[in-house]
Write a protein that binds this DNA or RNA. Structure first.
Lengths: 177, 177
DNA sequence: GACACTATTTATAACAG
DNA sequence: TCTGTTATAAATAGTGT
């Protein structure tokens, strides 16, 4: 018997609370099911008891995941938004950085030079000149290393192989100079 | 009046269905609220009407996100991972692209040349040489444009300004040659 | 469409076994 | 702790405004 009007406030007695939780949970789920059938709706109920026990209801012919995905799509107060926005921002910045890097590379390939003013062209020219020298030196050094290695290998390699490399080296050497 | 036992089956009349949906939804939310207070529980209800309208209930002092996060932790249903993984993958790829672009630029600044073999050095050398020429030509052309502009402006500019620019132009010209 | 009424059904708090 | 009973509160279908 519901003796006296129910006061809606926390049931302090642990046992009564537990019993009421169980009963009302069933009631709630029953109502949810009726609503589903009567009104052709989809309902997801997720609940945690005071002891953090999970109970859920989900309308037949759907899944909780489906409902949550839809919820995410439809609702503006997007539970995922904090993460999502942050990642979107990161992605945006990375794309922007990549774009700038690509422009730099293009300019170092002689493209998009129109965008540069005379000062920028001068810097770039100087930079290219320096790097060109560095690369040339490096290549020369690399060739030097190779000929050293070849000298050491010469005893075990055929005179033909040795000669072939020497020819290549010399051609590169004069190309470089 | 609830005249006659309610049959739990879809209400075919569109209007009645809509009304019942609204009424029962309120009833359900009220019950959920009572359960929250009486039993110290947390409840999340997400529902979609037959016309895909979203309605939700969430216990006070919590958020839908919290409940869903907890739900995900406790149950095995993996709600966000699909989205999350996809974005992580995108980010990873962008960072990788970014890294490669930076390496290319460094090499075009004469750094990190150790990583290149002789063939790569040769390509790079050639590329640098070509670009250097392009940049030089471009600068020369840019200077040419400036002197043209200056010629046209000469009537309205002082002879001093004109002479000063010409000196600069000539210094650049001989620098370029 | 929202609200008011009301006969009835339904849910349930307190209690009992 | 659970299951059942029951007096009573609450919900609500159908109707009217």
């Amino acid at each position: 018997m519901a003796r006296g009007k129910i006061q809606i406030k926390r049931i302090e007695n642990q046992t009564n609370r537990q019993v009421t939780y169980s009963k009302r949970r069933n009631g709630l789920f029953k109502k949810a099911h009726e609503l589903t059938v009567l009104c052709d709706a989809r309902v997801s109920i997720i609940m945690f008891s005071s002891s953090n026990k999970l109970h859920e209801f989900i309308s037949p012919n759907t899944t909780t995941k489906e409902i949550i995905d839809l919820y995410q799509t439809v609702s503006d107060v997007d539970v995922w938004s904090a993460h999502y926005e942050r990642m979107q921002e990161t992605k945006r910045k990375l794309l922007e950085t990549n774009r700038k890097l690509r422009t730099q590379i293009k300019q170092r390939l002689g493209e998009c030079l129109d965008e540069l003013d005379i000062q920028e062209l001068r810097s770039l020219e100087e930079e290219m000149e320096n790097t060109f020298k560095l690369v040339r030196e490096r290549k020369f050094k690399s060739l030097g290393n190779q000929i050293e290695t070849t000298k050491k290998k010469v005893k075990t390699s055929s005179i033909f192989t040795h000669f072939a490399f020497l020819s290549y080296y010399l051609s590169q050497y004069f190309r470089v100079m």
